[in-house]
Design a protein around this nucleic acid. Structure first.
Lengths: 444, 444
DNA sequence: TGTTCTTTCGCGCGCGAT
DNA sequence: ATCGCGCGCGAAAGAACA
């Protein structure tokens, strides 16, 4: 097999050069030719159209069939060639000769400025006076990016080389460059002649360039968030464990008062051991007084709590001290009722006491309401990895971290009406709870 | 600017060809030359060493300085060129002539078979008798792979183009191809002249191919989790909003009974409007009965609740019905005490009632305790995107979804002892809460 | 199996930017 | 003058024919 390099000649606008080429065997020479300024001359080695092609700036090209000499011999001993050059125009601008039927395959035309909508100089350099679809446009980097858009616009991640070449308006050769590198990376796989398939994991954004980074960033973000949550969970669970069964469990007054049902009501809590005796008599019972509820315990003490009406409005806290002298100062707030506790009624003239007793302890006086207290302010231990540490700048993710310090509990569903045992309606009285007859005895 | 293409001649093993070249201006010609079989002849256009270079198969090359003619004129009008060809050897194997000082930059020597440890024909085609460092060796795919090993052998993910060119034994031009494509993909970034930096997320393993997939999967996983959480948050918040201020807010009996402090105690809750009058008299007061607590309201009803002692053990639920005839069946469980409510004590002999009254409504009879009820079982609305939907297979992430249905609330910190206002200790009685003298009056 | 057509792609010239 | 790199020649590797 013998091969021969050919030659190409460039003309400086006017002068023609002559080229002498020695061919093996036959001492043929390529005919001297004149090159016209403003035109590109090329010798097409295309197997389908051998001959000279003259292309003008406007893109047309005229092809003269070569003398029907030995097409065979020509190809076997000597590679036909095309000559292509840029010509210097009078205005000093070089006009790249293009068109080129790209040898054989789906010819792509080198996009000349106007025609197709491929972005000119898609990059920076806002220098106004630049006309040319400058070099950057054809840069491999650029082509690759565009190629990527092609790829992820394809549903099955499969790309046809030829189509790509056409749609991207680049030589097929370039596509090969890209596919080969990508294959080397492992993200692409040649599937069959003229097609390959994307199998990588480089992000799917159209802009390709940042996608990998974004991915990683997002992941980092999510991971951070996850860690925070894990920690919160751990702490909440710990707390839970401590409260459950520990002596620290309690219901605060604000818990009770925060409940709408109890809103603006005076709430009294009585605590007695399960084995306590509970007696009651109807109002105006044996001694003319109102009904009596008597609780007696032998095992342990009975406790009575009155729930402050308003949750600590400091200005109000002293206003309505009961005339009956309810005086548990905070140092005295602890007291136990021994084994017997009685609640008697006495005439309405008796002393009265109501809202906001002064003994509101710090915890009780907290202005937070039931729900707020529980979900609004995380314990200081939660503050550590708090959501404020999570820097949010994007989309919907932010909503997550915002809600982080609240919610996340499962509340019991509201009870049905029937489930409010022991709630009396307007037509009923306490005595309705007992089955012996109370009627006939008068109150007062 | 004028440029001239040169020429190259290939010899079919023995015969020398002559090449005539017309130069612009001067009609110089390159001297005819003889090409020895087995050797590659090339004309080095290298600016640092102009002359002819003959490279043998073994890799040595001898350079003869060109006649010191006008180096200047030479370069300005005509691009020096190199001639390179493969020779057909008698055995039919073509030996690519290589070495080539790659024009200017760090000359890379085309690795001849032996020398460096670069894999020969690293691909398939296990046809035994193939000796040549075939075309595949220099394939972009191959080079790219080797390039990758270089990349991730670099600690700082930074690669020097020149070094790469040398170590990989390829022309620098090829490295550009690679870096450009990779940059287009977004995994590589040109850092400065001659250096770029790997920043991609393609996995760092040497095999590159699968690592990216893992990343994506993890992200997908986290996203799913995030969505679930977002939904739970939304629902919890909605629920919260509904409960807060709605008529549905409540404290269940089990809430109260679940508190250790109240454990095994009989708890009575009295609810009255804030403007209610609350009178009390010491035990054994004006009528010999125990103390009396009287509450009177003009604005709205007073409500009394007794908290079931045990939370609904079905077997026990009927056992200890109070002899006093506490008979609120569930249909009757709603009742209201009108404007006056009295709790009277009566002798211990009176009726008693305790644990697990039959009126435990479904909600109340729920075996869940305070904390459990609240955090253990999510309302059905939460079940929709429930954690069970999250498929967990990996590491610590699983702990997250496991805890998802619970916790996540901030509980109030335990109260200090002093904060339990209204708790009486063993030495105190209810009367200690009042400032008038109760002593001297006997209970019973 | 030899030939021809096609597709793939090594390779390096030389343009343009620095 | 240097260097990045567009660009496309033409050879190698298949595929289609004969």
């Amino acid at each position: 097999m013998h091969r021969q390099r050919l030659v190409e000649a460039l003309e400086s606008a006017t002068a023609a050069e002559e080229v002498h080429i020695g061919l093996p065997g036959s001492n043929e020479r390529t005919p001297p030719m004149a090159i016209l300024s403003d035109c590109a001359l090329e010798y097409s080695g295309d197997s389908s159209s051998h001959g000279w092609t003259v292309a003008t700036d406007s893109g047309e090209s005229l092809t003269k069939p070569l003398t029907p000499s030995s097409k065979e011999a020509f190809k076997s001993h000597m590679q036909p060639r095309e000559v292509r050059r840029r010509l210097e125009l009078d205005d000093g601008t070089s006009i790249p000769i293009i068109d080129i039927s790209e040898f054989k395959t789906p010819q792509m035309l080198r996009r000349r400025t106007t025609s197709t909508g491929t972005p000119r100089c898609s990059d920076a350099s806002p220098v106004a006076g630049r006309s040319p679809g400058c070099r950057k446009d054809a840069s491999l980097v650029n082509i690759t990016k565009r190629f990527m858009t092609l790829v992820d616009s394809s549903p099955d991640r499969r790309i046809d080389i030829n189509r790509a070449s056409i749609t991207l308006g680049v030589q097929k050769r370039r596509i090969y460059d890209i596919t080969n590198v990508l294959e080397g990376i492992g993200v692409l796989q040649k599937e069959s002649k003229n097609t390959c398939r994307w199998k990588g994991t480089l992000g799917d954004g159209e802009d390709a360039d940042a996608s990998g980074v974004l991915l990683r960033e997002e992941l980092e973000d999510l991971n951070e968030k996850e860690n925070t949550m894990d920690q919160m969970i751990a702490e909440a669970e710990e707390e839970l464990g401590r409260l459950k069964g520990g002596a620290g469990s309690y219901v605060t007054y604000s818990d009770l008062k925060g409940i709408p049902l109890f809103q603006n009501k005076t709430v009294i809590v009585i605590q007695a051991p399960p084995d306590a005796l509970w007696e009651s008599s109807p109002p105006g019972g044996q001694n003319g007084a109102g009904g009596t509820l008597r609780i007696k315990s032998e095992s342990s003490e009975i406790e009575v709590f009155m729930c402050p009406t308003e949750v600590a409005e400091p200005s109000e806290s002293n206003e309505t001290i009961s005339s009956s002298g309810f005086v548990p100062d905070s140092s005295q707030s602890h007291s136990q009722v021994p084994f017997e506790q009685e609640l008697l009624n006495s005439p309405p003239t008796a002393s009265q006491l109501l809202h906001s007793p002064p003994w509101s302890s710090p915890a009780l006086s907290s202005p937070v309401k039931f729900l707020d207290a529980r979900f609004g302010t995380p314990p200081r231990s939660m503050a550590t990895p708090g959501p404020s540490r999570i820097k949010e700048e994007r989309d919907d993710l932010s909503s997550l971290s915002l809600s982080m310090s609240e919610t996340f509990l499962s509340l019991e569903p509201p009870l049905a009406d029937s489930e409010y045992a022991f709630t009396l309606d307007g037509s009923e009285g306490l005595t309705d709870l007992f089955d012996f007859d109370l009627l006939g005895s008068s109150g007062k």
